[in-house]
Design a protein around this nucleic acid. Structure first.
Length: 761
DNA sequence: ACTACGAGACTTTTT
DNA sequence: GTCTCGTAGT
């Protein structure tokens, strides 16, 4: 008896879906039906009665993936998915900590800091500790804390070998102490805290282990060390861990992801057999062949070769532009042509290595009147007006969150300046409490004075300048307290509406010239709350009901922190999709442009000095290539405006890693075409319109360095201190002229020609 | 308390 | 080139 949702699975997929209760690693190539396998396995486990809906946990990396999973499960099974433990690592950790806040040593109303909040906490802390922010930049401190936590390390466990790290470690320690005082938790802390919770409380650990017979993980190659340990703790040795991932698509090493977790999983859980999903249902053959050839240049792989039953399709189209402007122009023209052929713009993506590259493209698209959508940038819950409203809500909820107070104590302006805030900070520091508590003290202080004496005296720093008649800190405290009273018993959307009005945010943005969008976003916040409440009510929490379910406001605040919301609202319109190669992971398009394929850009120059850096860049390129279903463009520009300067680049090495016969060089303007075809035919009589990279590079070299300098890209040189090397790129002119040299011994360096004593070799 | 100007950065990103 | 951040000036 096989449920009909199993039909249509290929042999490997079926094997993975119906695997018995045992640890498993599924190596799922791009477009091989990974999500389908994961969700179908969940459905199968439930349908066949092997597990109840709440007897398994499925972990994903993003909210989007979690939602997708729930949607698909609902489509296959007529069950209430609300009580199921399907979510992101952070979402599930949050759930666990809410349920056991006492054992986790957290206040019931603990707030979650997003990265912005975390950074501002770090800044406040450094100021308080009188730390030199030049020697210890807040960003670096934040990075240090997060990286340590991602490794599962508390401050006390961080190893130090130098003075700098010792100081960092101290700051980390103070940071955690501050979080404790405020009752706030950053993203990494959610995980670390729930890991420690499970680790320290045997009863809890046994409870969850007994409950979750199956632990399923998506995008396993993206897990960091802490997440892996968390999974191990949850799965124990008796439960079946089912990890799906693709080592070739591991592109987040820079934020702590460790593809080595895949090897460790096999060892730690004694995985007997790894199932490989290698049939690709997405792309035409040539595209896959190119991707396979490219990724074949990586040495450290688990090994996997994608194949497809589809036709070979057309070759990859390669375009060489003189400038980034020309490249953008080409992309615009091709996108229009594609649309004319009936391909929706929404099914076409332009990918690039770094966000800065979108500008030229946007300009060209805007001028041409082609609708487009850029991914990345501000998310809904990260907008300042939304953050302000949420800060009021946090205080109304009764949180000791200093960041929230600091953010809005004088917004809209109510005459509480830096001085007043400093004084509050001193009080808070002296008493070891939150800013809010300090504010309440000041307010009471002021109230007592005015009541007792009927007038004001000048000895209390705070109650003086702004008298008790509704000004200063007492007025602020009164405002928040009034909000609490006024909103008691209201529904969540009503609470938010009241707070937006009573706080003065609404009036402030109404008075502002450019405030219309912000007002709209505030209205949208009320909508978001209404939706949130409705979704909670439609599906009562099932077996989880009656447990320590957080109240609506607390739950909504956590939701706002954990799910930053969409990048942009107008997702429905037919628009060309612009995004980085990173954010394209998991998506697919009819046609894909991979742009800016130049040495130093893609692969990025910073990656060349990192161990394994080039392999990660190659995986990123692999991800980019495998997004395309039918048509794939690869383009690069000889010169590009970057950081306000024109840089000259050469074709990315990745061109050389894709077999020539899979690529076809195309050009736009006929003038250019004649010129280039002519020059190529002059040098060699190749009738086939295939791209010869060596040829292209020779051409580039010639054009790049038509100036009188003796330096050529590709030329071998010798430097008195760095030794022998090869020029890889050049930029600037005259006294500004610099060349980038890849030295055999000392790596890649930029040298100013006027100073560096370079000798041609 | 608000505006203006200058300095410095600037790969990739989710939670 | 363009954005953010911090300080100085009004």
């Amino acid at each position: 008896m096989s449920p009909d949702f199993l039909s249509g699975l290929n042999e490997r997929q079926l094997e993975a879906v119906t695997l018995p209760h045992q640890p498993a690693l599924i190596l799922a190539g791009a477009g091989s039906g990974k999500t389908r396998v994961l969700t179908t396995r969940v459905a199968w486990l439930i349908q066949t009665g092997q597990v109840s809906p709440h007897g398994l946990v499925a972990v994903t990396f993003t909210n989007k993936a979690a939602k997708e999973m729930l949607t698909r499960i609902s489509a296959m099974l007529p069950i209430n998915t609300r009580g199921m433990w399907v979510g992101t690592f952070h979402g599930l950790a949050n759930r666990m900590l809410r349920a056991h806040f006492r054992e986790a040593n957290l206040p019931q109303l603990f707030q979650i800091l997003d990265s912005q909040d975390q950074l501002s906490l770090v800044k406040r802390l450094l100021k308080n500790l009188n730390v030199d922010q030049d020697r210890f930049p807040p960003r670096q401190v934040q990075w240090f804390v997060t990286a340590s936590k991602d490794e599962g390390l508390r401050a006390s466990q961080v190893e130090t070998h130098d003075e700098f790290t010792r100081r960092m470690k101290e700051i980390y320690f103070e940071y955690d102490a501050q979080c404790g005082r405020e009752g706030v938790v950053d993203f990494a802390e959610l995980l670390l805290r729930s890991y420690e919770l499970l680790s320290a409380h045997d009863a809890l650990r046994s409870h969850y282990r007994a409950r979750f017979r199956h632990v399923l993980v998506d995008e396993f190659q993206d897990t960091n060390r802490l997440q892996y340990r968390w999974l191990k703790l949850l799965a124990g040795s008796d439960n079946a861990i089912f990890a799906v991932g693709d080592d070739d698509q591991s592109i987040y090493r820079f934020r702590g992801a460790s593809a080595a977790n895949m090897q460790d999983l096999q060892r730690d859980f004694a995985v007997e057999r790894v199932i490989k999903l290698e049939q690709n249902y997405r792309s035409h053959g040539h595209i896959l062949d190119a991707a396979n050839a490219l990724i074949g240049h990586n040495r450290r792989r688990l090994g996997k070769n994608l194949w497809t039953a589809e036709a070979k399709g057309e070759p990859l189209r390669v375009f060489e532009a003189a400038t980034d402007l020309e490249e953008a122009g080409f992309i615009v023209e091709e996108a229009r042509a594609l649309r004319a052929e009936g391909v929706a713009l929404a099914h076409i993506a332009v990918l690039y290595r770094s966000n800065a590259q979108s500008r030229v493209l946007e300009h060209a698209l805007f001028t041409a009147g082609v609708p487009y959508r850029v991914y990345g940038g501000l998310r809904f819950f990260e907008r300042q007006e939304v953050k302000h409203a949420l800060a009021y809500l946090r205080l109304v909820a009764g949180s000791g969150d200093d960041g929230a107070l600091a953010r809005i104590i004088n917004f809209p302006a109510r005459g509480i300046g830096a001085r007043s805030l400093e004084q509050l900070q001193e009080v808070a520091k002296a008493r070891g409490g939150s800013l809010w508590q300090a504010a309440v003290l000041k307010a009471e202080d002021g109230r007592r004075k005015t009541e007792g004496q009927g007038g004001e005296t000048d000895n209390s720093a705070l109650s003086t300048q702004h008298s008790a008649l509704g000004k200063g800190i007492p007025a602020f405290v009164a405002l928040i307290e009034q909000m609490r009273e006024a909103t008691a018993g209201l529904s969540l959307p009503e609470v938010i509406e009241h707070v937006i009005g009573a706080s003065g945010l609404k009036a402030h943005y109404q008075a502002e010239r450019e405030g219309a969008d912000r007002l709209e976003n505030l209205a949208e916040l009320i909508n978001a709350a209404a939706t949130f409440v409705a979704e909670r009510d439609v599906q009562p929490a099932g077996e989880a009901a009656g447990m320590d379910e957080p109240d609506e406001l607390t739950a909504f605040l956590a939701h706002a922190a954990l799910e930053a919301g969409e990048h942009q609202a107008d997702a429905g319109a037919d628009a060309l999709q612009l995004m980085t190669a990173h954010s394209a992971k998991g998506l697919e398009f009819h046609s894909v442009f991979v742009s800016g394929l130049e040495e130093g850009l893609f692969p990025h120059e910073n990656s060349l000095t990192e161990a394994d850096g080039i392999e990660e860049e190659r995986r990123l390129m692999y991800v980019a290539l495998t997004r395309a279903r039918r048509r794939l463009y690869l383009s690069f520009a000889q010169s590009r405006m970057l950081h306000g300067q024109t840089r000259y680049g050469i074709a990315s090495r990745f061109f050389r890693e894709i077999p020539e016969n899979l690529m076809r060089r195309i050009n736009r303007g006929s003038v250019l075409e004649v010129h280039q075809t002519g020059s190529r035919q002059a040098s060699r009589e190749s009738g086939a319109p295939s791209l010869n990279v060596e040829d292209g590079m020779a051409e580039l070299r010639a054009r790049n360095l038509k100036s009188a300098t003796p330096w050529r890209i590709g030329q071998s040189v010798v430097h008195p201190t760095f030794g022998a090397g090869v020029i890889v790129s050049a930029e600037g002119r005259g006294t500004d002229a610099r060349v980038q040299v890849n030295f055999r011994k000392s790596g890649v360096k930029w040298l100013v020609l006027d100073y560096a004593k370079l000798i041609p070799a």
